[in-house]
Design a binder for these strands. Structure first.
Lengths: 221, 221
DNA sequence: GCCTGCTGTTACCTACGGTAACAGCAGTCT
DNA sequence: AGACTGCTGTTACCGTAGGTAACAGCAGGC
């Protein structure tokens, strides 16, 4: 019959999924320790096994890295959505809270951040039916955040005709602003997180348009 | 005496500099053809020599890549400064022109762009007295652009007390916005360059603060 | 003629990603 | 019971990449 077989298959799939999780956790530890250039050997050793098993589970290095990235990206996106939906007096408050959530996350775990943002360009092979569920879920973090924010903007703000296009542009632009400023801030720590959030929100709120030209400057910029 | 020796040294240095330039041009061709993961062997072959010479000139792969990046980055930054200084009716016009210059550049030579922006994280070794002039001139493009824009903002806009901090934050934020939006746009080509520039400038000009909430939305974002 | 400092070579090392080929051990089918 | 399947795990290997001796030749200054 089929039930016996499928029961067994279920058990095996379940076991495989558990194993996969264990492997991912081991990989996580290594990446956290060694940075994004952790080797497959090192990860296998940390997991207490040898390379071929890793390859059976994840196909290739890119597969493993994608799986890892998906986990972290999902977690970060969830907390961002949370901040975007949290109660706050006004839209500006919510935007500031979301920026702060992001910055707090990268501040708390810079190694993870480095791994997600600078994944050493792990090749652009197409789907190729590897059999894993990673698919296009693996779009790098920046693009995924941009897309998500675009959706939120298109949903919640009235932009008139062509608004969807504007929402996408703004989504990716804002995410990029947050990312670059965060990256720089994380390296140089030139000020507190609050001040950074405040000034970025100011920028987004159009203060650039409002400030005066410097006296003596040639009226430029 | 010393004059003879130093004359000779001058000649040698000069010859070395020429050679270096030739090698860089060869490397450039290979990178343009093969993308950022071009191998040292391939570059050496293109230059008509073998690996050790490359290593004598550039120390290691990172050194070569940095030297290449500096060339392209300098060129791009020069054209951006140009756009920022060009005559335009108002500040908004200048900002739009600068955005457009950047986007036109990455549109014209996406391979170079990919090489500069996703340089496969070529390690973070400190200076180490390698003897080359690369030094901290090699800060990745994004950070250099951010710093440059920060200078321009601080110079030309009156931001009041603490303005330098604000200028740096804005500089890196704006550059990040431009970069992420450009990266996304280059991949998806969802609209013309003009529209992208227009909407980004709008964003920078505070339209986000001005638009109404969508009717029916929970008043959020 | 000898030394110095470059250019260039061949030949090698190490480390990494990736892949057979094989052994063992469940549970299933006959 | 035994053959079969599908996993887990291994050792041992391959190709290629970055990087490094060690050595040969060739200019010019002493």
């Amino acid at each position: 019959m089929e039930t016996g077989t499928s029961q067994r298959e279920d058990h095996q799939q379940e076991a495989a999924a558990r194993r996969r999780k264990e492997l991912l956790e081991a990989a996580d530890r290594v990446v956290l320790r060694d940075g994004p250039e952790a080797s497959m050997n090192a990860i296998a050793a940390e997991a207490g096994i040898t390379k071929p098993i890793l390859y059976r589970h994840f196909g290739d290095k890119g597969g493993l890295y994608r799986a890892l990235a998906v986990r972290h990206t999902d977690a970060l996106l969830a907390s961002l959505r949370n901040a975007l939906d949290a109660p706050a007096p006004d839209r500006r408050g919510r935007v500031a809270a979301t920026l702060d959530t992001y910055l707090a996350a990268i501040e708390a775990r810079p190694q993870v951040y480095r791994f997600l943002m600078h994944p050493a360009d792990q090749g652009q092979q197409q789907e190729q039916e590897q059999g894993f569920d990673v698919g296009h879920h693996s779009a790098p973090l920046l693009r995924r955040m941009g897309d998500e924010l675009a959706k939120v903007i298109a949903d919640r703000v009235e932009l008139g005709p062509g608004g969807e296009e504007v929402a996408r542009i703004w989504g990716h632009g804002i995410v990029g602003m947050m990312h670059a400023a965060g990256d720089w801030w994380l390296r140089e720590r030139p000020c507190s997180r609050e001040r950074l959030v405040h000034h970025l929100t100011d920028l987004l709120w159009g203060r650039l348009a409002l400030v005066d030209d410097r006296i003596g400057a040639p009226g430029l910029f």
